[in-house]
Amino acid sequence: TLFEALYDYEARTEDDLSFHKGEKFQILNSSEGDWWEARSLTTGETGYIPSIYLAPV
């Protein structure tokens, strides 16, 4: 399942991933609670993103 960003997000740590509204992600690991490891389909970068900023596509 792909997810789309509902809002912009600016990374706060080196493990976080910055993204823009409308960016799409492949989720790599969603077992860490509210922060999911994801790969951006726009940039190819991976990192942790807040799941509350996402909606399934």
Rank of each mutant, 00 (worst) to 15 (best):
W36S: 01
G47Y: 05
L54T: 03
K21G: 04
K21Y: 05
V57M: 07
S51N: 07
F19E: 00
G33V: 12
L2N: 05
D34Y: 14
A38N: 00
E14R: 11
N29P: 04
R12L: 12
W36F: 06
D34E: 13
R39Y: 09
E32C: 13
S18D: 04
D15H: 15
E37P: 06
A38I: 06
Y9Q: 02
G22V: 00
E32T: 13
A11R: 08
I27T: 02
G44P: 01
L17T: 03
T13D: 12
Y48E: 02
P56W: 05
D34S: 09
D8E: 07
W36E: 01
L41D: 03
G33D: 11
S30I: 11
L54W: 01
L6A: 05
G22Y: 06
L28I: 11
K21W: 04
S31A: 12
A5C: 02
W35H: 08
A38V: 15
T1V: 13
I49Y: 01
E32D: 14
A11L: 02
T42Q: 09
T43D: 02
N29A: 09
E37G: 04
L17V: 06
E4P: 00
P56V: 09
F19C: 07
I27Q: 01
Q26G: 03
E14L: 12
D16G: 15
L2I: 15
R39P: 00
E23R: 00
A5Y: 00
Q26F: 14
D8F: 04
S51H: 10
S40H: 07
F25S: 00
F19W: 02
F3W: 15
H20L: 11
L41M: 12
R39W: 05
W35C: 10
E45K: 15
Y7N: 08
F19I: 09
A38K: 00
T46C: 08
Q26L: 15
G47P: 00
V57L: 10
Q26A: 09
I27P: 02
A5M: 01
F3V: 06
S51P: 10
R39F: 09
T43A: 02
T46D: 03
G47D: 01
S31R: 10
F3G: 01
N29Y: 07
S31T: 12
P56H: 06
R12M: 12
V57Y: 07
D34F: 14
W36C: 04
D34R: 06
S30Y: 12
F25T: 00
A5V: 01
E37V: 15
W36V: 07
H20K: 15
L28S: 04
E10H: 11
R12E: 11
A55W: 10
W35V: 09
S51A: 13
W35E: 05
E32H: 13
L54E: 01
P50K: 14
L28A: 04
R12D: 10
N29D: 13
R39E: 05
E4T: 08
L41C: 11
R39C: 08
P50F: 11
R12F: 09
T43I: 01
S40C: 07
E23Y: 04
R39S: 05
K21D: 01
T1Y: 11
P50L: 14
S31C: 11
L54P: 01
A5W: 01
D8Y: 05
D15I: 15
N29C: 09
K24C: 08
D16M: 14
L2V: 13
Q26T: 10
Y9I: 03
T13M: 12
A5G: 03
S30V: 12
E37W: 15
I52F: 13
W36L: 06
